[in-house]
């Protein structure tokens, strides 16, 4: 956390007025949006955030170029054996599949890692830089500040997913043909329908990340070190991903936040297979509820000294 961020933070905030003891001042509802806007601008202006988004955008570019080179001589991608990320074999018929491949490739690690960094930094980073108490001096209230932080992390989830999807779409359009596409069930849908599904898939992927976002935010309220919060969140992510591969734990696995992540691919079936999608969204809502409220319980009762 650099010192340089401190003035920017204060510039966006309302003039820090300390509420007189006993006086209860109700801020206007618009104030929340001001706080949110300020928070969004702060987050998305950071070099760190931009670098994360850059890395995410590079993944589909690399996948696209790799598939193009590999299939130059007419062979099929992924060695023809169905290896590699989901949908990779279909990219050569239709560039739109690069969107799905890129999301399938980034969802297990790159996307949640980026979310973990941003969410872990949300509260602990402020505390680390010594800016948290200034934020609390403004009459926002801790609950409202926490909600704003969570909304910002969610916005980052959406932006990060869309960055991957749009980069993949541009790359796919440049390198591969577009047009009617074949769903994984073997039926054909029009390109417009395919684009609609791609958008829906991007939204589902963004929603899949709300669980780890809430988890990261909770961890962020536990510590005063931004680095520790980020490392813990990303470490938990890796641990859960490993545990999800151990067959002996199959009874627990449906409750891991990453278990149904790849269910977004079910939107490419015809008809759409909803069971796992619904499980996924329900599970993310559960994580958001549990860790969101835990973060609230912790943040509104803890002593803020930094």
């Amino acid at each position: 956390m650099s010192r340089a961020e401190t003035p920017m933070r204060q510039a966006g905030a309302e003039p820090p007025e300390v509420a007189a003891p006993g006086a209860v001042r109700a801020p206007s509802p618009l104030w929340t949006f001001g706080l949110l806007r300020n928070e969004l601008v702060t987050t998305f202006r950071r070099w760190r955030t931009l670098a994360l988004l850059g890395v995410l955008a590079a993944v589909p570019v690399l996948v696209g170029i790799a598939v193009k080179i590999e299939t130059r001589d007419g062979s099929s991608a992924g060695g023809g054996g169905g290896a590699g990320p989901a949908f990779i074999a279909q990219i050569t018929n239709n560039g739109l599949f690069l969107v799905f491949t890129a999301l399938a490739a980034t969802l297990p690690f790159f996307l949640p890692m980026a979310i973990g960094v941003v969410a872990g930094d949300a509260i602990a980073g402020e505390a680390n830089a010594g800016t948290l108490r200034y934020l609390l001096v403004a009459p926002a209230g801790r609950s409202r500040l926490l909600l704003t932080k969570y909304a910002t992390v969610m916005a980052f989830c959406l932006v990060a997913t869309l960055v991957v999807a749009v980069a993949a779409l541009i790359m796919g359009a440049l390198l591969f043909p577009l047009g009617e596409l074949t769903t994984i069930s073997g039926t054909r849908i029009s390109f417009a329908d395919g684009l609609g599904r791609a958008l829906l898939i991007a939204l589902v992927v963004a929603a899949s990340l709300t669980g780890i976002a809430a988890l990261g935010l909770f961890i962020s309220t536990l510590t005063n070190s931004g680095i520790a919060a980020m490392a813990t969140t990303v470490g938990l992510l890796i641990t859960v991903q490993i545990l999800d591969q151990i067959p002996q734990l199959h009874a627990l696995q449906p409750y891991f936040f990453s278990h149904y992540w790849l269910s977004f691919a079910d939107l490419m079936r015809e008809p759409v297979y909803w069971d796992n999608l619904v499980n996924n969204l329900g599970l993310q809502a559960l994580y958001a509820g549990v860790f969101g409220s835990a973060a609230w319980a912790r943040f509104t009762t803890r002593d803020v000294t930094a």
Partner: peptide
């Protein structure tokens, strides 16, 4: 969620 006016405003 508890109303912030009453006890969230830890600035007070």
């Amino acid at each position: 969620m508890a109303p912030y006016e009453s006890d969230d405003n830890t600035g007070a």
